[in-house]
């Protein structure tokens, strides 16, 4: 399982996007799971969390939680998320507990360039996803 996360770390080590962005990777281990926190240098506040099982790699970015949704707007937000899921490249919306996120999943057999593409596209989707969701969120 950790081998797959090692592969992710190796794929991102010297990776610089066309726009000059880099990703920093930190590993967290405890008794029950290992995860990587991947941060794109211009979107520091939304970390990509990478976890792995025997067969798949999951990359998840928590966007906001239920408490930030304008009262009564959840159904409309959910409908929009379902409608947009197919259009969002390589990523999908998800709800984990109270946290809304976007995530991408891929096979542990994926190679470095596929991992880089997945993470780049997911990081590009963060701001797009927030932009479209902000109409349903309480303004800061």
């Amino acid at each position: 399982m950790n081998n797959s996360l090692d592969k992710v770390q190796a794929a991102l080590a010297d990776y610089i996007t066309e726009d000059g962005n880099r990703f920093s990777v930190t590993e967290t281990k405890n008794d029950t799971f290992t995860m990587l926190t991947i941060i794109r240098d211009d979107i520091e506040e939304f970390a990509i969390l990478a976890t792995a099982s025997d067969s798949q790699l999951l990359f998840n970015v928590a966007l906001f939680d239920k408490s930030q949704i304008i009262a009564g707007q959840s159904p409309a937000l959910h409908t929009m998320m379902l409608e947009l899921n197919m259009a969002m490249p390589l990523s999908s919306f998800a709800l984990t507990g109270a946290n809304y996120s976007i995530f991408g999943a891929m096979s542990t057999e994926s190679d470095a360039s596929q991992i880089q593409e997945e993470i780049l596209v997911l990081s590009e989707n963060i701001m797009d996803a927030l932009e479209v969701c902000q109409h349903f969120l309480i303004k800061a």
């Binding site: 966007l63 930030q68 507990g97 995530f103 969701c133």
Partner: peptide, 24 residues
């Protein structure tokens, strides 16, 4: 594992409170 990872990060961002920082 993904749920545990999100929970760990949520806690990291806002202490014991599980809510994330304001997205907007």
């Amino acid at each position: 594992a993904a749920q545990q990872a999100s929970a760990a990060t949520a806690a990291q961002f806002s202490g014991s409170n599980s809510s994330l920082r304001s997205a907007s």
